[in-house]
Computed example of a mutant assay.
Amino acid sequence: MQQYSDERQARKQYVHHRQVRVFSTIAAILVVALVVSVFVFFHTIGKSNADVPQAQTNYGAPLVCATNDPKKSPVAYMQNGNVEVNVLNGTKAVGLARAVGDALVNRHFNVSSVGDFTSRKVERTTIYYGMNNIAQAYTVYSNFTDAKLVMDNRQDGVVSLVIGSTFNDLTKKGATPAAGAQIKNIKGCTLPSKVDQAKLPQDFRQPKK
């Protein structure tokens, strides 16, 4: 009987020691995971904080205000049907321009054409517009969460939307401003009256001079 009791006690001790080793290993893994998570978390925060100024300033591109004089009646978002857009695919994803174009048509935008951009390595979705269609550009812009606005020297009212690799989806319909709502100037933008139009980038749709 004593031998049986000793064997049972030995088994209990073995199981206990084994459990201690298992729990100790799990605890060590959790500690390592916690340390890695904290490092990644703070590294990400640091990176995000570094990126905030760029995101707030149109991803580094010069930004033109929607209105010339804040004291006057602000420009309003337009009816989607009054905004003409051509959609271009700046990525290697086949059919992306058509898909985005169809999505904009479903939102009643006047999509005049879809096709491929001159480059298939565009990173940031870009909305090209001119001095004569600022309100149209901001109306398109409100339907995207990751796009930037770029003014060029185009003279017509067409907005060119070039889809980049950062594109994921359109802004949810309920989150877009209603037609007629006032467009607020973005901090750091340049008033249209202060823009030197002679220095604007050339309209990429035109032959290079």
Score class of each variant (00 low, 15 high):
residue 180 G to T: 01
residue 86 N to R: 13
residue 15 V to R: 05
residue 178 A to S: 02
residue 46 G to S: 06
residue 116 D to M: 13
residue 151 M to T: 01
residue 62 P to N: 02
residue 85 V to Y: 05
residue 109 F to C: 02
residue 138 Y to K: 02
residue 117 F to W: 06
residue 114 V to E: 15
residue 120 R to V: 08
residue 129 Y to Q: 05
residue 55 A to S: 13
residue 61 A to C: 09
residue 160 S to R: 14
residue 64 V to P: 00
residue 88 L to M: 08
residue 33 A to Q: 14
residue 2 Q to K: 14
residue 110 N to W: 01
residue 44 T to A: 12
residue 51 D to M: 12
residue 206 Q to S: 10
residue 20 V to I: 08
residue 90 G to Y: 05
residue 6 D to L: 08
residue 56 Q to T: 02
residue 14 Y to T: 13
residue 29 I to H: 13
residue 162 V to P: 00
residue 47 K to S: 10
residue 195 V to H: 11
residue 47 K to Y: 09
residue 59 Y to I: 05
residue 140 V to I: 04
residue 46 G to I: 01
residue 115 G to V: 05
residue 17 H to D: 15
residue 144 F to R: 05
residue 74 P to F: 00
residue 180 G to L: 01
residue 170 L to C: 03
residue 65 C to S: 11
residue 33 A to G: 05
residue 129 Y to F: 11
residue 21 R to P: 00
residue 7 E to L: 12
residue 188 G to Y: 09
residue 95 G to S: 04
residue 102 D to Q: 13
residue 131 M to W: 08
residue 195 V to F: 04
residue 38 V to D: 08
residue 198 A to I: 11
residue 78 M to K: 01
residue 161 L to I: 05
residue 76 A to D: 03
residue 185 N to A: 09
residue 163 I to M: 04
residue 66 A to Q: 02
residue 25 T to F: 15
residue 176 T to Q: 02
residue 11 R to Q: 11
residue 126 T to C: 01
residue 187 K to C: 03
residue 23 F to H: 04
residue 169 D to E: 12
residue 138 Y to A: 04
residue 124 R to D: 08
residue 47 K to H: 10
residue 162 V to A: 04
residue 76 A to R: 02
residue 121 K to R: 09
residue 43 H to P: 12
residue 199 K to F: 04
residue 97 A to Q: 06
residue 94 V to T: 12
residue 42 F to S: 10
residue 7 E to G: 07
residue 177 P to S: 10
residue 80 N to L: 00
